[in-house]
Write a protein that binds this DNA or RNA. Sequence first.
DNA 1: TAAAGTCTGTTAGCTAGAAAACACAGATGC
DNA 2: GCATCTGTGTTTTCTAGCTAACAGACTTTA
Lengths: 227, 227
Amino acid sequence: MTLIESNNKSNLINAFFECDLKQLQKDYPSIKEINVSNKAFLYHQGNRCSDVFWIKSGIVKLSHITEEGIEVTITILGKGSALGCFWNNSASPEVEETVQALGEVNFYRIAKSDFRALMSHQAELAWHVFEEIYARKQKIERKLRTVLTQPVEMRVIATLLELAEIFGIKCTHGYALEIHLTQQEVADLVGASRSVVSTILNDFRNRGMLNYTREQICINDAAFISL
Amino acid sequence: MTLIESNNKSNLINAFFECDLKQLQKDYPSIKEINVSNKAFLYHQGNRCSDVFWIKSGIVKLSHITEEGIEVTITILGKGSALGCFWNNSASPEVEETVQALGEVNFYRIAKSDFRALMSHQAELAWHVFEEIYARKQKIERKLRTVLTQPVEMRVIATLLELAEIFGIKCTHGYALEIHLTQQEVADLVGASRSVVSTILNDFRNRGMLNYTREQICINDAAFISL
DNA sequence: TAAAGTCTGTTAGCTAGAAAACACAGATGC
DNA sequence: GCATCTGTGTTTTCTAGCTAACAGACTTTA
């Protein structure tokens, strides 16, 4: 569905990420390129962070832990997503989410003042960032809708298809999600308890719609689309 | 909480809305100013809309109706919010939400090409639109969290406080929400059934935390903050 | 190779809240 | 004045899905 769009975006974002970092640092001295490994945290909720994090490669999980200790995973983001703190938000200087790497992640970290300068110098790029944020908003609205109207089973399907789009590598029998997602993580993402997600995944496996081990989920997307 | 911020924003947005419309139309011929009355629809989900709607005054309800006919109210928006279609989204030309006026609403309608031109000419303004969209995203993320982790009662409280911020006119005993919101509408906004919302509101009334008639909800915010 | 830790599968019991239904009270209209 | 409509208050029934709990499989550490 987002093929054309994401290509458009990719071109511009790609061009940006292929820029010479040294060159960029002349104008925006705070830019740093950082690599982190699986499970590393980019930042935690409650941090008084004032930088923008811009994913160059890899995948991150954006989540929030309530006072009661329940983890809610808001979304999973990949290349081109900008996170962190965009403004001098006098109201709440503390970020609301925790961002954790799923696998190796490579990103730029920029002070928000420099980020803003960059945005105002490069209108096209700014527009793409805007688009990306807007798309995320739409995605969360869609998620809110499914949470409020669909039973867990449907939400699992929707979540898997979404994940397939982000991680998906076409293999011979559909998508392969080569990602270390535990059932608990899937459940947090779906907004359901682990036990029901487990039973549901099991059921799907029996019906031949997908297969999985601890390490990998493989979706037979034809089977999904059929319903 | 958002006092300083919203003032900042207001200044710029106000300046924009106080511009001479005729003047604006020279550069952006598609701009039209439109007034609608209570319950009018700005657009419906499924419309192939290609314009941006920019609220100049009044309040709108952004909702979505599922195939099963369940109405989910995503959010309530006021002055300064930009809605509609921002891009030539080749993927899905149809908008996902329905936008309805709550009371009198006055807005600008602009073709997206003109809107984009405006944004690129007026960097400051563009930045504010960006901020506003981002704030909406944050708000929806917060809502998703409460839906997934809080019981209906807590969600009602959160919703009322939010509404108080949007509609709120300070009266002697707290906020007054002078808005024609039925219990059904509150329920749609909370994401719960009307009957439980009814009982909860009733209970709050008995405990002296708020009062309401068909026309108006009045919150004793001190009582709310205490919990 | 034991021991501890992590992930999955499954079951039993319990509850928040949805759905449906109906009575009542103000509106609105004829 | 009577009828209709829209919104509120309340109760009863029913179920999706949560919690808790435990057993088995696989991994890591020592």
